[in-house]
């Protein structure tokens, strides 16, 4: 509750949060709010300029760009968000186990992470797509597989830093259980690190998915995805540049939203960075 109250005070933060929630809702309810079928081909309207009927114009097959952007939210934002949450969860659990219990468990988990991190993300993704076939779900699977190691590393370092704090030593002295020490004393502090890393990698994942779709490895052809829309617009980049603008702006604004949100979350979570609380004399 305190978190939300603090976030509301930060104008930029709450705006980004509302914007992102709105975008996600639009993605969920795309079939209701989209004015046209995103897959309906309408050749007479090829490269049509924006009109009242088609607010953002039509693409090279005469499909409505606005509807495609709305449907694209599902692949470009919602599914990525899900993949992110899964990999953050795996990474957090692994990072906590490694950082809190140390010893041999730590060494094993960290060596696994080293192995995962030694492959470039694109190479592994392309390899997995090569084995399992083209498709969004395979790319997301590859992301989860690769990203958790990265999160585990960062979260472990963060845990190590807080475990040496004297209030953790105090909590151990008075006989609190490991579970409550982790939940009450370490998780809240590492949460700001987790939130920041997660939101910044959300941005990079959106860009990567778009990049892979641009290469034709992502979502299958007729379905809408922002990166693929960019790729399709590329052919007419010089004659009809406005076709690149809509998906480009969509990607940029969502990425910026996540970045601002992560900054504000960091401030909202940490009492030291906040405005001083009311002074009660």
């Amino acid at each position: 509750m305190r978190l939300i109250r603090n976030l509301v005070r930060d104008k930029l933060g709450i705006t980004s949060l509302l914007f992102l929630v709105l975008v996600m809702l639009m993605g969920v309810f795309a079939p209701i709010i989209a004015p046209h079928d995103p897959l309906a081909i309408n050749m007479p309207l090829r490269y049509a300029s924006p009109s009242w009927e088609h607010l953002l114009g039509n693409d090279h097959l005469g499909r409505d760009v606005l509807s495609r952007i709305l449907y694209g939210i599902r692949a470009s934002v919602l599914w990525i968000f899900l993949a992110l949450i899964i990999s953050v969860c795996i990474g957090t659990v692994m990072g906590f186990i490694a950082g809190y219990y140390r010893g041999i468990v730590d060494s094993i988990i960290m060596r696994i992470c080293d192995v995962m991190l030694s492959f470039p993300v694109y190479v592994i993704t392309i390899a997995i797509v090569g084995i399992l076939g083209v498709g969004l779900e395979n790319i997301l699977f590859a992301f989860v597989l690769m990203k958790w190691a990265w999160f585990a590393r960062i979260i472990r370092t963060s845990v190590l830093q807080y475990i040496e704090m004297e209030y953790v030593k105090y909590a151990r002295t008075i006989g609190l259980s490991h579970r409550s020490i982790i939940l009450r004393h370490i998780l809240p502090l590492t949460f700001s690190d987790i939130a920041v890393v997660a939101s910044s990698s959300m941005s990079s994942m959106i860009l990567q998915i778009s990049g892979l779709s641009f290469l034709g490895l992502g979502i299958k052809a007729p379905n809408a995805e922002w990166g693929m829309m960019l790729s399709e617009a590329r052919e007419v980049m010089f004659t009809r540049p406005e076709l690149m603008i809509a998906p480009g702006v969509a990607i940029i604004s969502v990425v910026i939203g996540f970045n601002f949100l992560s900054d504000s979350l960091q401030v909202a979570l940490n009492p030291e960075l906040r405005q001083p609380s009311k002074i009660i004399e």
């Binding site: 704090m165 004297e166 002295t173 008075i174």
Partner: peptide, 28 residues
């Protein structure tokens, strides 16, 4: 652990890190 409960306590040197920064004095 259970033998330590309520029997042993400690005050450290570094007052800056002795209290969880997310806790109020009351919580601590």
């Amino acid at each position: 652990r259970k033998n330590r409960k309520s029997k042993i306590s400690v005050v450290f040197q570094d007052y800056r890190s002795s209290i969880n920064p997310f806790f109020t004095v009351e919580d601590a």
